[in-house]
């Protein structure tokens, strides 16, 4: 079988912040009643992470859960294990009004790190990214310039950004231009 590569094949940019396309990431979009005990158990079994509070993520060593909407989670799992974990998730929720779909190949994931990561992202989205307002573990689903994206902050104050695969090059270019050398704003 041919080797799977991600849309930008782990492209990198170094400026006032570091932008990296992270390669393939298993992602399952899960919609349903997030307060249901069965859904909570199924999501925890699939990822080892507990269902997060609104606008937060929980990450475990086998995956993670991102709160995307009052009835939607993004389930993060290793790329190679998507189909087995998706089947388990669908079986566990067979009797519920819920939907689980593999979206791994429809998304791109970026890492944005470095001391100016907050202000690079603040240039592109209508979100308060000051250290007071946006802390590790928080997630926001919003827009980056003209396209939809979601991002969350990891424990080391870097960002993970998820966008549609079809706009991956656009988002990479946006982040690279916002992070070019000499473009510090120092407003945050």
């Amino acid at each position: 079988m041919s080797k799977v590569i991600s849309v930008l094949n782990q492209a990198r940019f170094h400026g006032i912040a570091d932008v990296t396309e992270l390669g393939v990431q298993g992602m399952i979009s899960l919609r349903g009643d997030l307060s249901s005990a069965r859904l909570k158990t199924a999501a925890r079994t699939a990822t080892g992470a507990t269902v997060p509070e609104p606008h937060r993520v929980t990450i475990s060593d086998q995956g993670g859960l991102c709160w995307m909407a009052p009835d939607e989670l993004l389930v993060l799992v290793p790329y190679a294990e998507v189909s087995t974990r998706l089947t388990k998730l669908q079986d566990a929720l067979a009797k519920d009004h819920a939907l689980a779909v593999d979206v791994s190949d429809a998304r791109a994931v970026f890492q944005l790190g470095g001391p100016h990561a907050r202000e690079v992202l603040a240039k592109l989205s209508p979100v308060d990214l000051s250290a007071r307002a946006f802390t590790p573990g928080m997630l926001r689903r919003t827009r980056l310039a003209q396209v939809a994206a979601a991002f969350w902050m990891t424990q080391d104050e870097a960002f993970r950004i998820v966008c549609f695969r079809s706009v991956a090059q656009y988002v990479f270019d946006l982040l690279s231009i916002a992070a070019q050398d000499g473009s510090e704003v120092d407003a945050l």
Binding site: H55, A69, P126, T142
Partner: peptide, 11 residues
């Protein structure tokens, strides 16, 4: 009123 975000008009 659903997710509690103070959403800017552009969102």
């Amino acid at each position: 009123p659903y997710c509690g975000v103070l959403a800017d008009e552009t969102e």
